[in-house]
Design a protein around this nucleic acid. Sequence first.
DNA 1: GTTGAGCGTT
Length: 145
Amino acid sequence: MKTLLQVVRRILPLQLQNPSFPASNNWRRFCSYQLSNSLPPPNSKLFVGGLSWSVDEKSLRDAFSSFGEVTEVRIMYDKESGRSRGFGFVNFLKEDEATCAKDAMDGKAFLGRPLRITFALDKVRGAPVVVPRLPKNGNAIWRNR
DNA sequence: GTTGAGCGTT
């Protein structure tokens, strides 16, 4: 009596028979593996979304400086209205400081709105911009990676 | 008095 898994393995192409493909029936683990594998890699710079309109760079720096040495804070503003676009970047001296700040602050309310923090994308000249989708759980889902 | 996902004015 062949198990379903044995049948599947016989008919699947070899590329799909690799260690990341579920050898057991644990699809939940497989999906979370794929998800975590698609997150932005750790970086000393954080993308901070979900900012209240009224947050400025000074208050953002103050909120993050307790996790490490903040080397740069930038909030994106609309060019004509001058209003905050609701997201910005916080750069730390060290990557583990950024990781610490992200873990501590992601999802935490700041001036009434929950922050959505991921590691910033590497801005690579000449490369096509891969736009991540940010679902409600705050984890970025990437394509082409 | 508005709006609410997203990746950046040198």
